[in-house]
């Protein structure tokens, strides 16, 4: 993303971009998924750095691009879709509908980051269609334990941090169980400032 686009996006978010330039920006974003990804990250990172969890102008831009995409046949290059892949078990059924949904969701992750304070990753249990008539899910406690152990031996920043987050969450649960009066405090989250 070049500086000109960055300035245009900033101006749009601040409501200061002239209409004709805004139209051009929206059209360009609707045609370029890579650029949408870059703009998304640019806005998301800027927001995080400023400690903001919502961005009205960003939402407006997302809605404009979504509207633009709805008006034109979707020709999403295979290598530019940005959002999380829909389940491969769903895709054959949903086909074009899924493709359109992905493209719209891919416009910006912005709409989904309002829950940024929920840092603990949720464990998503997905039913196994081949065994769903037996017992489709596994024990969460076991899975957490395995994720922690896997993380300890992983060489990925993300996996290791996630492993420690899960372990810390587990510890919070243990501490709460030992101290029932402190149960309510589990929900309390306060920003932490690093000391220099």
């Amino acid at each position: 993303m070049n500086e000109a686009i960055r300035m245009q996006v900033s101006a749009f978010v601040d409501g200061e971009l002239p209409d004709n330039e805004a139209d051009l920006l929206v059209r360009r974003l609707s045609q370029d998924a890579d650029l949408r990804q870059q703009v998304s990250e640019y806005l998301a990172i800027g927001r995080v750095m400023r400690g903001e969890y919502t961005v009205q102008g960003g939402n407006a831009l997302r809605e404009r691009v979504a509207a633009e995409l709805e008006e034109r046949p979707l020709q999403e290059p295979a290598d530019t879709v940005v959002a999380k892949q829909p389940s491969r078990y769903v895709r054959p059924v949903a086909g074009a509908a899924i493709a359109a949904t992905v493209a719209l969701a891919a416009i910006f992750g912005l709409g989904q980051v309002a829950d940024v304070d929920n840092a603990m990753p949720e464990t998503a249990i997905v039913a196994d269609e081949t065994v769903s008539e037996t017992v489709p899910t596994m024990n969460d406690d076991d899975l957490h334990q395995y994720l922690i152990l896997h993380g300890y031996d992983s060489n990925s920043f993300s996996t290791r941090v996630t492993s420690l987050q899960i372990r810390a969450d587990e510890l919070s649960g243990e501490a709460a169980a030992e101290d029932p009066e402190a149960e309510d405090e589990v929900e309390v989250t306060e920003p932490v400032t690093s000391q220099p």
Partner: peptide, 19 residues
């Protein structure tokens, strides 16, 4: 140790399968 048979799950980009 339990009656559960099989299942798949995901956390972030990590996936798991149990049987």
């Amino acid at each position: 140790t339990d009656e559960k048979k099989a299942g798949r799950s995901s956390v972030g980009a990590s996936n798991s399968y149990s049987t």
